[in-house]
Design a protein around this nucleic acid. Structure first.
Lengths: 238, 238
DNA sequence: CAGTGGTCTAGACCACAAG
DNA sequence: TTGTGGTCTAGACCACTGA
């Protein structure tokens, strides 16, 4: 393991431990240099990541404050898959695979997915049940060439788990869009919706690999009262 | 201006210019060292920021690819205020200040805002109109001590503009939560809602200063069909 | 004032991608 | 094999904070 990762891990542990408490200052960078026998640049790399994660807030001339994140409810934000989310919250959940087939991108689909016309893709539709109630409808288009041997069972568990852990594919970033759409016939068919509801939350994502190519397009449709999205956001300097 | 900021600005300009086109590789870090007469660490600092902004994707052993962001619709994400959003989209918008008064945080409000009981705060309610239609209802609690001289006119234009540009307050980060709530009486009163709608999008934010203290709590309630949220998210390594 | 984090330099070795 | 980005070092000066 890299040195800055070890330092990072140790500092995170000590924050969980309450060795460093909320609103305390961490040891100064120069002290951390001595503690971990590392250069200041290496220490700063670890601290940078902690700042991005929302664990500390650095202040020039003062030090690094441990952020009172326990006051805040939730992991923090980012690109999180359904299973990870459920695991972290401890809900019982099931996935039903409605459709699992190989198709080819046509012109209409190309505009939606940003994949090129003619690209073979897996076309996957799944419902997600929590406590027996179908609350999420997922539609996925995944580049076939990346994962030709994928099976129905793999996607029933977790698509991301299969791609990242089994195939060691490196997912790099995603562009997401959240909007509120009208409920359509398929939503009614597949989900357990309140008859009075007219709307559904739609989360559309383009997911990219390390080489900056699109490899997946997903739409997740969530029952409105089961939906929650949290984000830790740093203010952009312009 | 700092050296890495100048390099950053120049590279961003050259991407907008199409000097460096989408899916092209930037010059290598060692070439950039020569071009800008800087150390590699300084070059890397500029590139790091570009990667975080979603402008480039770095690849070990290959180089830095310019991301095809023009395929994607929208600025990118982050903590964005209403006026900035409207400016960037070129909509005509008006703000009406419904309430603007000084109150003191009681125990109920303390739990909501994470401010301490007894803290004096500005209590502000505003509606946002686009093309004459009231679509957003904002409720703000802002620490009074930070901005005692604030006026109704300041918040009618833009709260963030006043705090950041006039008072030079440095907003550091925010924790946001998006949920779908039931429409309440105040929503009906203040917003131009479809009578058939039962739900509204609620965006709740705790906003923090550089010293990691809460200084504002905001709830924005958006008419469902006018709401859109986009995010550029990098995959977290665990 | 002393100590902090922010910026910058010049060098080094490594793992990885591509030809 | 060559060149890339990733990691790491040892040093330096600066602007800022708080006593």
């Amino acid at each position: 393991m890299k040195k800055y990762e070890m330092i990072l891990q140790d500092l995170e542990e000590k924050i969980k431990n309450k060795t460093y408490q909320e609103n305390d200052l961490l040891p100064s960078e120069n002290e951390l240099v001595k503690i971990y026998d590392a250069s200041r640049a290496t220490i700063r790399q670890a601290l940078k990541i902690m700042e991005e994660k929302g664990l500390i807030q650095k202040q020039k001339g003062r030090g690094s404050v441990v952020i009172a994140s326990s006051k805040l409810n939730f992991p923090i934000s980012g690109l999180t898959s359904y299973r990870e989310l459920q695991d972290s919250l401890g809900f019982k959940s099931e996935t039903e695979v409605i459709k699992f087939e190989k198709i080819t991108v046509d012109s209409e689909l190309a505009a939606l997915t940003l994949l090129e016309i003619g690209t073979p893709v897996w076309y996957i539709i799944r419902t997600r049940k929590i406590d027996g109630e179908a609350v999420v409808l997922d539609t996925d288009f995944v580049k076939y060439d990346i994962c030709p041997d994928m099976t129905k069972d793999d996607v029933a568990y977790s698509l991301y788990d299969y791609l990242e852990k089994q195939l060691k594919i490196e997912i790099s970033f995603a562009q997401k869009e959240i909007t509120i759409d009208f409920i359509n016939n398929e939503d009614r068919e597949q989900l357990d919706l309140n008859p009075l509801d007219r709307h559904i939350v739609s989360v559309k994502s383009h997911v990219f690999l390390n080489d900056a190519s699109v490899f997946q397009y997903t739409e997740s449709r969530h029952q409105v009262d089961k939906f929650q999205f949290t984000e830790f956001a740093r203010r952009q300097k312009r």
